[in-house]
Design a protein around this nucleic acid. Structure first.
Lengths: 293, 293
DNA sequence: TGCGTGGTCAATAATTTATGCTTCGACGCA
DNA sequence: TGCGTCGAAGCATAAATTATTGACCACGCA
């Protein structure tokens, strides 16, 4: 049993999991995020009353998050508030110790980076390290790696595909379900399919995943941390948590957090020995030769 | 009755009152002052056992100090510890930075993020905000925006192109110098060309830039912060600073810093009024419609 | 010695939390 | 469409924790 949700702010964790929650759980989560400071005088029963739900739901909520029970959650949130963590949006710069930028641009840049940092932390929390290892292992041992991502999801897919190619991992990348359907006809047991889809709702991608699994391939989904059919069809899944109320900001931080996750896996692959780094070096050399002279 | 012992740290209060306490109370006080961090997993009964006293003494102790009861005291001490208050005497980690992650993965992830953060800061420093404004202005007013980037440089180019399209900015993106050469035949005065090239050494890209300028277009180079020919041929330039001795890491942070820079520009464009956000919204809606039903 | 006071504890009442069981609704699959 | 499975929510209740009560003891003082 996991003793406690790491040393990280429980509020961060709650935000991270929020998407994957049921309606009632979300009610609790929102209350905690908004009104955390009121929690001190709330018993689980009172909290349940305030939200018009049953007391047991509150307890189960706490346990699902990895706390021993409601009092443990409450205690932990108390700590977080005292620390100035989370909750207030971007408020008192609590953690980083960065000096505040003097001009508008610096402020904007810092703020954006701060949000990205939070998303990265949330994302880290929801991807168990055993899962990441497993995924790195599967990719490292794969025969062929197939990748697909539509629209904006195609970008990280392509970036990751390039990276893998540099490690001499045979990678096939498509922007297109039709081409991909054709490609996976050649898939066999040791192959891997990475499916990128922020919301995981495309039925076409689900179909492709199913076909791929019928051929004994390993499917890895890469989606937002929400319940979604794509994830359900996958052997492994990578999850991303990234939130901002502004619709034009959210995609930026989604991509940033995802990128970091993939970077992690790339680094793990690089450092998994087996001369990966040597392969990378020689590929870089060849590219340099091609470009410069 | 005093609802709560003011806002003063409970540990201070305990120390203050310690001298006027009975022997047993003093036992409790000392334990709390010394071992406050253990309190989290102690119920009033357990604490009593540990001190070989009765549970009711613990409760009465709490109430005497002005707390509603034992849980209230416990909560309050939890806050105090989180705040770094009193107790530990030597001030521990000075109150600054983040706690170090517990497992290898967290450490790796945090370290990588730290390096990215540094690169972002460096990058911010070398791009004058006037330059960024100018570039955002040029793009915002452009007729067509052309983009090119070869190999890995194609990825941020493509990502940025997608973003601009969402703002109803007409964008043409190529991975290929040949196609690009053809495309820019249509370029005119208000058009913009963004050239992505980490090292800025490709002569083909320089040529394209030159041709583009001959047609009165605006050329923006996106390169590393080094003296390079591409930059020399551009009207504006975006610069990226990203360093790491490990060859497999450096590209990651280069991309990250670059991405952030482009994100900044995107946000500036979004917030430059003129109904940009509205356009973005409606584009997002249309995409959602296309994907889901 | 006898009395009042303050402190402690064991027993128990009250409250709070955790769990088992049941029902309900969503979803995948045939 | 219908069926089976699964998870989520609530109710009832068991378990635990916490708060209170009253008895007992030690001590100071008249």
């Amino acid at each position: 049993m996991e003793a406690r949700p790491s040393t990280m702010s429980p509020l961060l964790k709650i935000r991270a999991e929020r998407d994957q929650m049921s309606a009632i759980e979300r009610r609790i989560a929102d209350f905690l995020l908004e009104e955390a400071h009121l929690l001190r005088d709330y018993s689980s029963q009172q909290l349940a009353n305030a939200l018009k739900i049953s007391q047991s739901s509150v307890v189960k909520f706490s346990q699902k998050l990895g706390f021993k029970g409601y009092p443990d959650l409450k205690y932990s949130i108390g700590e977080a508030i005292a620390r100035g963590d989370g909750a207030d949006g971007n408020g008192g710069n609590g953690g980083g110790g960065e000096p505040v930028g003097e001009d508008a641009h610096s402020a904007l840049a810092e703020n954006l980076w701060y949000i990205k940092t939070r998303a990265e932390q949330e994302t880290r929390l929801i991807n168990p390290s055993t899962g990441i290892d497993a995924i790195a292992g599967v990719i490292g041992k794969a025969g062929k790696v197939f990748m697909i991502g539509l629209g904006e999801d195609g970008i990280p897919a392509r970036a990751f595909a390039m990276r893998l190619s540099m490690l001499d991992i045979l990678t096939v990348h498509h922007f297109d379900t039709v081409l991909m359907t054709a490609s996976i006809a050649t898939a066999t047991k040791n192959d891997v399919l990475l499916v990128f889809s922020e919301h995981g709702q495309q039925t076409n991608l689900c179909k492709i995943s199913r076909q791929f699994r019928e051929r004994q391939g390993n499917v890895i989904s890469v989606t937002r941390h929400s319940a979604n059919p794509l994830r359900a069809h996958a052997d492994h899944s990578l999850l991303v948590s990234a939130h901002d109320e502004r619709a034009h900001i959210e995609p930026l931080i989604y991509q940033s957090a995802l990128r970091h996750l993939l970077d992690m896996i790339f680094v793990l692959l690089c450092e998994s020995g087996k001369g990966r780094l040597g392969q990378l070096e020689s590929n870089l050399d060849r590219i340099r030769n091609l470009m410069e002279p």
